[in-house]
Structures are given as structure tokens and as C-alpha cells.
């Protein structure tokens, strides 16, 4: 298993667990979609898988080892709202540089125009910003990407653009993918396996 969740328990208050003993695994070479209604806990699970939240019980293993705490995490997330995922006071160049410095060819591949690098987030549209978030997440050390409703806020053309870029990179570099979404059509397009959240609990 590439990324594995073992017996995860999590709840925001002690009496009610959102996740009660979830077991979930993604194998090498797989692209998995996690489908479920809003508010069911699929976002919470993805945050636990990426190491953002600590589960109350259970463990997350990447390549059979726990996720590193202090260094670059091989599991990176792309969020639903790109404007919240970048520092509004930084130019996009700095935001990108926080993870790595891609070459011009990569930026071109991601559909990022060179002049966008010197703009602030407020000067870009959601779709343009999301390209930066995807580019940032695709740093050389990244081995796995969790996309949490990554394209929900975008129009369908931009959605198709971003997924095309993402899939190309992922296949080239053999990166694992977990796409959290509510859209079955999208899941069928993008992934090799579809998991319903209800099946996990």
C-alpha cells in the first residue's frame, strides 16, 4: 500500500466520532476517488491522511512508514478554495518558491503565464490561482496528492484544464492521487477506482 489509514478514529467533540475505525488504503499506481455527500467527514479524512489533523486513534502510513513531521511531507493537498491556500500578502512567485522553484518549461506546462508570478493573489482569478496551488503541490519531493474538491469552485472548462495538467504530471512522475469529490462523472473521468465514503464506516 502506498498510503494507508489504519483504524482511524476522529471526532471534534468527545461524545460523537465522525470517523469511527476507518480503514482505507491506496495502492501503487492507483488513482482513487472518494465520493460522499457534504459534511459526511470526507474532508476530515483527507486532512488526516495528509497529516494536517491527528487522529484520536489509529495511524496513517505512507510507504509503510508514518508521515514525517518536520520535513517536506510527501503527501500534499490541493484545496477547494485556492484564495485561502495562499498568503494574500505574497506575490505568487514567493508562494511557489515556498515549496520549490520550477523551471519555465514546467510553468508553461501548467498553463501559468510568466507575468502572473509577479502578481498578488487578489489580482488573479480562482482558476489561475488554483494552477499555482497545483504547481506548488507538485514539488519534486511530492509522492502523493490529495485533491479536496479541487475543481468545485471552477467553471467546467477550467476544471477540465486543471485536471488535464494534473493527470499529465501525475502519470509522468508516477504520483498517487486521492480525489475527494461529490461528482460521479468527474470521478469516473479522473480515477481508476471509486470509493463511496459510506463504505468506509
Amino acid at each position: 500500500m502506498l498510503l494507508e489509514a489504519k483504524n482511524i478514529k476522529f471526532g471534534y467533540n468527545k461524545s460523537r466520532l465522525i470517523l469511527n475505525g476507518v480503514n482505507f488504503g491506496i495502492d501503487y499506481g492507483e488513482r482513487v476517488a472518494l465520493i460522499g455527500p457534504s459534511g459526511c467527514g470526507k474532508s476530515t479524512l483527507s486532512q488526516i491522511l495528509a497529516g494536517y489533523l491527528k487522529p484520536q486513534a489509529g495511524e496513517v502510513l505512507f510507504d509503510s512508514k508514518p508521515l514525517p513531521r518536520k520535513e517536506f511531507c510527501p503527501v500534499q493537498m490541493v484545496y477547494q478554495h485556492p484564495e485561502k491556500a495562499v498568503n494574500p500578502r505574497w506575490k505568487l512567485r514567493s508562494t511557489l518558491a515556498e515549496a520549490w522553484t520550477p523551471d519555465a518549461e514546467f510553468l508553461d506546462d501548467m498553463g501559468i503565464a510568466p507575468e502572473w508570478l509577479d502578481r498578488y493573489p487578489a489580482e488573479l482569478s480562482g482558476g489561475e490561482m488554483q494552477r499555482f496551488c497545483v504547481a506548488r503541490a507538485l514539488a519534486p519531493q511530492t509522492k502523493f496528492i490529495i485533491a479536496d474538491e479541487m475543481s468545485t469552485m471552477l467553471d467546467v472548462i477550467t476544471q477540465a484544464q486543471i485536471w488535464e495538467l494534473m493527470l499529465r504530471q501525475i502519470q509522468q512522475r508516477n504520483i498517487g492521487l486521492l480525489a475527494v469529490t461529490h461528482s460521479m462523472e468527474l470521478a469516473e473521468r479522473v480515477c481508476t477506482r471509486i470509493v463511496r465514503f459510506e463504505e468506509l464506516t
Binding site: 494536517y52 493537498m77 485561502k84 515556498e98 506548488r136
Partner: peptide, 11 residues
Amino acid sequence: SQYVRASYKMG
């Protein structure tokens, strides 16, 4: 905020 937490994840 997401960008601060993302920053930690970038080591």
C-alpha cells in the same frame, strides 16, 4: 489558516 498549515507541510 490553510496557507500557514500548508507551509508546515512543506517542511
